[in-house]
Nucleic acid binder design. Structure first.
Length: 113
DNA sequence: GCGCTGATTGTTGGT
DNA sequence: ACCAACAATCAGCGC
């Protein structure tokens, strides 16, 4: 595996609990001028891929149910099952990296606009 | 160097 | 247009 454990950075499950306890988030203020919209997570890919299927199997289900269904199945999914989604997520991360690069380059060149 | 928190992504449906 | 649970993820700041 190319994934070599750097340290404890990802081991701790603190932030997830903290984030859940801290406060519900959604659209929060944007501080950066041209903030490079972060990449989509594997779950986002999963929602896009399954949103149609879930909606079809659960025509009555609305956002709430769909969300829970996707989350439940997502958790049930094995690493192999997530693999394709994670792969897309990684691809998106790369896209984000490109945006970040431009964002960084831009801010370095002209941040005042 | 590690630790946490904030910000962001996408879905739908209602107001 | 925004917000709600669902999960992930990263970048930036703090000590």
């Amino acid at each position: 595996m190319p994934r070599v454990k750097s340290s404890a950075t990802e081991s701790k499950a603190s932030r997830k609990a903290a984030a859940a306890d801290t406060k519900k988030r959604t659209k929060r203020t944007k501080k950066d001028p041209n903030a490079p919209k972060r990449a989509l997570s594997a779950y986002m890919m999963y929602s896009q891929a399954n949103r149609d299927r879930v909606r079809k199997e659960n025509p009555d289900a609305t956002f709430g149910e769909i969300g829970k269904f996707l989350g439940a199945e997502w958790s049930k999914l094995s690493d192999d099952g997530k693999a394709p989604y994670i792969k897309k997520a990684e691809a998106d991360k790369e896209r984000y990296a490109t945006e970040k690069a431009e964002y960084d380059a831009k801010k370095d060149s002209d941040e005042s606009d």
